[in-house]
Structure formats: structure tokens, C-alpha cells
């Protein structure tokens, strides 16, 4: 598994909001069922001293960190303040920062991710469901009943489509090591490449499923990394029939060396020798051939 396991001590930022409180409860139910550390502290500015489902809440990450020495933070803070929360977590030395929040302005994301990386922290997301290592740790909002432990790593830009694929895998008797939702925004922290590098060093993971979408070239870069690291990979790219993404003028086309549409992405992956399935339901069969 990558990024998180039973030992991972979790902080939740935005702990007292609806989503934060709801998922503290779910993450800790999961932690109890697998014997993991779970959520040990929460942060909401101005709400220090409270408890949420038995978890102590602090005003600042520094205070929470001084008392609990957490390894990972899950952020449910609203879009206007979420980038600041990412930087606050990084500044306190938290190594893995999962930003669930959607609609954060992209300039804020670029700044927060650049700062976090300069601190040596990994940001997952934003606009992502987080990750789940079955039997070990639920670090985010993924619906754990669909998951089962096993040798397949999953990396995805999508949320519910990931659940669909995990459901198909579990029904086919194929378990997962870690499932990572890296987020659907134009700028994200950890990319396919970062996850593939980590999976290639993980002894539990034997093969990886990459679930991509239209836009950008991150899938191509991820596949190149998998090939160079000798990590077996199957890909599915959503959006073949989606209307062409609004092009970012001339510069976007020059930078991305193509239009980032699903079909050209699939063709580039296939030219590299990667198996790309046309339907999510074909994934269990194709991945089992690589195990």
C-alpha cells in the first residue's frame, strides 16, 4: 500500500463542518474495524476545545501537531480557505495532505502545491475522494464496503468512476492494495507519475489500473513512468464521446503537444504498448492477465 496504512495518524481540517464531522466518524469506524490509528485530531479555527465524535478539535494545525504528531491531513475546508489550509498543514510538517475540497481557484492551488512540495509534503487532490488502502486505512471519503484487499493499485482522476471500477474488481474477486483518487482539477498535487513511482516500490502491488479523463497529458507521463519502472499497467480513459474540451488558445495546444482529448490520448498510450480498455467492465479480465 502507498501513502497510508494502519499506523497513519490522521488530522482532519474543517473538522466541525457537516462533511468533516461525518467523515471523521466514517474514517474512525473503518480504523476500528481494521485496528488502525484513524483520526486523532481535528482543526477548525475558532472551534478549539470542542470534540467531534470523541476527537479533540484545535484552533490551529500547530497546536494539534504539538499534541498528536499526525502523519496525514484530510481537508474539508471551503474553497476560499482550503489552499491556506494546505499550506498550514505543510508548514507543520505533515507529510501527506489530502484536499477533498472542490472549486478552489487554480492560482491558489498552484501556490499551495508549490509551497507544500517545497516543504517535502505530498498533496493529493484537490477535488478528490482521497485514498483507501483496504484493511489498512481510509484517508478520505471513499465508500469502504466496495473495497477488498489485494494486489492491484488503482489511480484515478475521477471519484464515482473509481468506485465503479473498484466494485467491478471486487465482484471479480480481485482485491486492491491502495486506491488513489488524485483529483479532477487542471492542477493537482500528486500525479499518476508520483503514484506509479510509489506503487513500483510497494511489495503488495503487482499491477496498476490507471483511470484517466480528457485534458492534459498526465496519463501519458504516468504510462511512461510505469514502462520505465516495469510496472504492469492497464488504462481506461473516459470521455471519448465528450465534446471537445474548450481549447486554451494557441498556447495550450503548444504546451500539451496535442489537444488532450480522450481519443488521441488512447492512441498515444496504445502506441506505447499499453493496454487500454474501451469499457470499465473489461478491466477485471485485463488486469488479471497481468497478475
Amino acid at each position: 500500500m502507498i501513502y497510508c496504512d494502519k499506523q497513519t495518524r490522521i488530522l482532519v481540517q474543517g473538522a466541525t463542518g457537516n462533511q468533516g464531522a461525518f467523515h471523521i466518524d466514517l474514517m474512525n469506524q473503518y480504523a476500528r474495524s481494521v485496528g488502525g490509528a484513524g483520526v486523532v485530531a481535528g482543526v477548525t479555527p475558532g472551534k478549539g476545545g470542542r470534540e467531534v465524535h470523541g476527537v479533540p478539535v484545535y484552533d490551529t494545525v500547530r497546536e494539534a501537531q504539538a499534541a498528536h504528531d499526525t502523519d496525514a491531513s484530510v481537508i474539508f475546508v471551503p474553497a476560499g480557505a482550503a489552499a491556506d489550509s494546505i499550506m498550514e498543514a505543510a508548514d507543520s510538517g505533515i507529510g501527506t495532505i489530502v484536499a477533498i475540497t472542490e472549486h478552489i481557484p487554480v492560482h491558489d492551488v498552484m501556490r499551495a502545491v508549490a509551497y507544500a512540495r517545497s516543504c517535502g509534503s505530498a498533496v493529493i487532490g484537490p477535488n478528490c475522494p482521497g485514498l483507501l488502502s483496504p484493511g489498512e486505512c481510509r484517508l478520505g471519503i471513499m465508500p469502504s464496503p466496495l473495497f477488498t484487499r489485494g494486489p492491484v493499485g488503482v489511480i484515478s482522476r475521477s471519484g464515482t468512476l473509481t468506485y465503479e471500477v473498484v466494485d467491478e474488481l471486487t465482484r471479480a474477486g480481485i482485491g486492491q492494495s491502495t486506491v488513489v483518487g488524485i483529483g479532477g482539477d487542471p492542477v493537482i498535487g500528486e500525479t499518476f507519475v508520483d503514484c506509479i513511482e510509489k506503487f513500483s516500490k510497494d511489495s503488495y502491488t503487482k499491477a496498476v489500473i490507471l483511470i484517466g479523463e480528457v485534458g492534459g497529458a498526465l496519463e501519458i507521463e504516468g504510462a511512461e513512468a510505469a514502462l520505465s519502472l516495469d510496472l504492469p499497467l492497464v488504462a481506461y480513459i473516459a470521455g471519448v464521446s465528450a465534446p471537445k474540451e474548450k481549447r486554451m488558445g494557441h498556447a495550450g495546444a503548444i504546451i500539451e503537444g496535442g489537444e488532450g482529448d480522450a481519443l488521441s490520448k488512447i492512441q498515444r498510450l496504445e502506441a506505447m504498448g499499453i493496454t487500454v480498455v474501451a469499457r470499465p467492465s473489461e478491466l477485471p479480465q485485463k488486469i488479471s492477465e497481468l497478475l
Binding site: R157, S158, I211, E213, G239, R279
Partner: peptide
């Protein structure tokens, strides 16, 4: 659908 990826995948299956 719920979620962009699942909605797009549904669209792709319709085309398929």
C-alpha cells in the same frame, strides 16, 4: 450521473 468521470463513462458506453 454523479461525478464527471462516471457521467462521461456512461456517455462513452452509449456511443459504444
Amino acid at each position: 450521473g454523479n461525478g464527471a468521470g462516471l457521467t462521461m463513462a456512461t456517455l462513452d458506453l452509449i456511443a459504444h
